[in-house]
């Protein structure tokens, strides 16, 4: 593998993590298709590299969220029971499924992310009252007022079930699954958005490590792809968190919708029509 290709992979990780951090999606949803479509990396190796990058990004980001007390660990553990199991199933599907099928599934996922970005629900308000048999009630500090407020997660069974979809997607496609997990927690379960993002960030590291261990066992982790991508992710996530506050959110959203749409079409075309 040439130095130029290693540099291109690092640059991919940098740009993907930068963009992902700016919009709060994580980098996997960009890294995997760009590695596969633009750089011609084998999709299974790209998925494995994506999963390892997700673990790395999750450890870095959730360490900050944990220090700030934003992660609802009990809720994370309850949801992880289904997410981790589904991620293992997803990881096994990657090992055995044909690449063309994975490309089509990935294209559908990218289309879904675009649809959520265009038509998705606005952030929901936290729900403060209701039954709490699992003692999942938490408190958080509101940014607007600086005061602490309570919330109680609702619809736990549905949340656990749907979290399995996030885990399956993560395991199958080497992405974090935060794009699915955050709306489940915020819109369905009534968890405040900041807590949902922090809890999801913590969860995706554990979810991704389940599938990454399966990829490692199947020999799918390619060090020459994974390590440069990791280095790029490290720099990109720092850049993204700074740049995210300076770029107009609407401009960034439109740009990302266009990029993701192009990647979705390219991935679908590749999956359906390439030999």
């Amino acid at each position: 593998m040439s130095l130029l290709l290693l540099a291109a992979i690092a640059l991919t990780g940098l740009v993907a993590a930068g963009l992902g951090t700016m919009i709060g999606l994580g980098g996997g949803v960009f890294i995997v298709p760009v590695l596969a479509i633009v750089l011609g990396v084998d999709l299974k190796a790209a998925i494995a590299a994506g999963a390892v990058c997700v673990v790395f990004n999750s450890l870095r980001s959730s360490s900050v969220y944990l220090d700030r007390g934003l992660v609802n660990l009990r809720l994370a553990m309850v949801l992880l029971l289904s997410t981790a199991l589904a991620a293992a199933i997803g990881g096994l599907i990657v090992v055995f499924a044909p690449v063309q099928l994975l490309k089509v599934v990935f294209a559908l996922l990218l289309g879904g992310v675009v649809a959520v970005m265009v038509f998705g629900p606005d952030p929901s308000k936290a729900r403060r009252e209701g039954p709490d048999p699992w003692k999942l009630r938490g408190t958080y500090r509101r940014v607007s007022t600086g005061k602490t407020a309570d919330y109680v997660p609702h619809h736990l069974r549905t949340g656990v079930g749907l979290s399995g979809v996030a885990g399956l997607t993560s395991g199958m496609l080497g992405i974090g699954g935060g794009a699915i997990q955050v709306p489940i927690m915020n819109t369905l379960m009534g968890v405040p958005l900041r807590v949902a993002v922090a809890t999801s960030t913590f969860m995706v590291g554990i979810t991704a490590v389940v599938s990454a261990l399966i990829y490692a066992g199947a020999g799918l982790i390619d060090a020459a792809i994974t390590v440069p991508a990791l280095a790029g992710v490290l720099l990109g996530s720092r850049f993204g968190s700074h740049a995210g506050t300076r770029v107009k959110a609407e401009t960034l959203r439109t740009f990302l919708i266009i990029i993701l749409s192009i990647l979705a079409i390219a991935m679908a075309y590749d999956g359906l029509f390439s030999a």
């Binding site: 981790a84 990881g91 261990l213």
Partner: peptide, 9 residues
């Protein structure tokens, strides 16, 4: 659940 993925390999 996480450790189960080790012997799967």
């Amino acid at each position: 659940m996480v450790l189960v993925s080790l012997p799967i390999k």
